[in-house]
């Protein structure tokens, strides 16, 4: 019996690419992409359904298509073109709540995969070197993306309690980089002169975009549930990243970095939020033992290799202008 997978947030480049990736999997019968705006690129065999996860229509879509696996990717890190912080919050938190409500209602749903992020661990000087899945942030995030993800994970846990028959897999992915990724961090690395926080050299882990698609597909098709950190092997320092990308860094005090980044990239999206500044100050490391042993997933790219691939693409990207991702709306 084949599976029917529903992917939210397909208008974004990362969602679209994953949907195509999933459609190529032989154990998956159909892939349905959901979003309010159509995806920009080629979606191949994926069928697109125009629906907003922020209202109850999504329940009808899930019921009608007899969806058994829901992959929730519609959590955005920056307001982007979707409007301000309010719109982002509405999409992230209320969208997730509606989606979970729909999943709870529809009996056919048997598996839920949520793409979360390691941002949920926050960033502070009191952080342990490596976060395991059992740890939480040192202080509850009170703003931005980190807060949204924190709340979303709370709702997902609530859903898992209410529907114990559904396998819920939460993937806390490290910063995704790759040739096609358009995120605040990759935009930051694409700058020719990179402002850094004076006197700090944060540790970073990366996940290659291909590994992200693989791990999402792996989670959607394997019989594992739980919360997992997902990141490439190894660790790099921000100074190493900048050196390896052949960029120039300009150290400046923390408060100036956000302004500098915003000023330097004035026209384009960048909203340089507090949790990103914390990340660039204190860095973050996550323990991926559980990913290997319980989830049974092994990333193809290590952190350094993912960075290398990104750096390799940067030459092209810079010459021909950054690759435009799909609309930042879900």
């Amino acid at each position: 019996m084949g599976r029917v997978v529903l992917v939210t947030g397909i208008s974004r480049d990362i969602g679209r690419r994953f949907a195509r990736h999933a459609a190529a999997d032989p154990s998956i019968d159909r892939v349905i992409g959901v979003d309010v705006v159509p995806p920009r690129g080629d979606i191949g065999e994926v069928s697109f359904v125009r629906a907003d996860i922020r209202n109850a229509v999504i329940a009808k879509v899930i019921a009608r298509e007899q969806v058994d696996t829901v992959v929730h990717m519609s959590v955005i890190a920056t307001p982007g073109r979707s409007g301000g912080r309010n719109a982002m919050k509405e999409l992230n938190v209320l969208g997730t709540m509606q989606l979970l409500a729909a999943c709870q209602k529809v009996e056919s749903v048997k598996h839920l995969v949520v793409k979360s992020t390691t941002t949920v661990y926050g960033g502070s000087s009191r952080d342990p070197a490596m976060f395991t899945e059992d740890m939480g942030p040192k202080s509850v995030p009170r703003s931005g993306y980190a807060q949204d993800v924190y709340e979303i994970e709370g709702y997902v846990r609530g859903f898992a309690r209410r529907r114990p028959d559904v396998r819920v897999t939460t993937l806390r992915c490290a910063n995704v980089i790759g040739p096609h990724v358009e995120s605040p961090l990759t935009n930051y690395f694409r700058m020719s002169v990179i402002p850094t926080v004076l006197g700090f050299d944060p540790r970073m882990q990366f996940l290659h975009e291909d590994d992200l698609y693989d791990v999402l597909r792996h989670a959607a098709t394997t019989d594992v549930s739980g919360t997992f950190n997902v990141a490439g092997d190894g660790m790099v320092l921000l100074s190493q990243v900048i050196r390896r990308l052949g960029k120039l860094n300009v150290p400046m005090p923390g408060f100036a970095v956000a302004r500098a980044v915003t000023a330097l990239r004035s026209a384009r999206l960048t909203d340089f939020s507090r949790e990103q500044l914390a990340f660039l100050t204190y860095g973050r490391g996550v323990d991926t033992t559980r990913m290997r042993q319980e989830l049974g997933f092994e990333p193809n790219y290590s952190t350094a290799e993912a960075l290398e691939d990104f750096g390799y693409s940067l030459g092209h990207t810079l010459a021909s202008g950054p690759v435009k991702a799909g609309a930042a709306r879900a």
Binding site: A129, M130, D201, R203, G234, M235, V236, L237, S239, Q240, V241, I242, R243, R244, G283, G285
Partner: peptide, 10 residues
């Protein structure tokens, strides 16, 4: 070149 290795603690 940044071509050196740090462990998980930096």
């Amino acid at each position: 070149d940044g071509d050196y290795v740090v462990d998980s603690f930096g």
